[in-house]
C-alpha cells in the first residue's frame, strides 16, 4: 500500500529535544562485562568513586555512597581503581552471561 506522506508523524521543530537529561532512560548497563560490587563495611564515603564515575552511576545520597546505578554503569572499573588504597571497598566481578 502506498504510504501517504502528508500523514507522516509529527517531529519537533528543528530537531530539538525537549526532555532534558532523558538519556537517563537509555540503558547502557548491557555494555558491562565487569560489575562493581561495594563492601559497605569498608566504604568510608569519601565519594572519590562518585566524582570519577564517567556514567553518573555511583549513587550518592546525603553525602554517602549508597550503591551503583547498574542501568548505566558500563563496568569501566574506575571506581574500584580509584577507591583509596587503604579502603578498597569496591571489587569488579564477572557479569554472569
Amino acid at each position: 500500500m502506498k504510504k501517504d506522506c502528508e500523514e507522516k508523524k509529527e517531529v519537533p521543530l528543528g530537531g530539538v529535544i525537549h526532555k532534558a537529561g532523558n538519556a537517563h532512560d537509555y540503558v547502557t548497563g548491557g555494555w558491562r562485562k565487569l560489575r562493581p560490587v561495594l563492601d559497605k563495611d569498608k566504604c568510608t564515603n569519601c565519594l572519590i568513586c562518585w566524582v570519577m564515575c564517567p556514567d553518573s552511576a555511583v549513587i550518592a545520597e546525603d553525602g554517602k555512597m549508597v550503591g551503583f546505578d547498574l542501568e548505566h554503569c558500563k563496568g569501566c572499573g574506575i571506581c574500584a581503581m580509584e577507591c583509596p588504597d587503604k579502603v578498597k571497598a569496591i571489587t569488579m566481578e564477572e557479569e554472569e552471561a
Partner: peptide, 8 residues
C-alpha cells in the same frame, strides 16, 4: 527553566 538540546 526549560532546557532544550539543539543540534542532536
Amino acid at each position: 527553566g526549560h532546557p532544550i538540546t539543539m543540534g542532536a
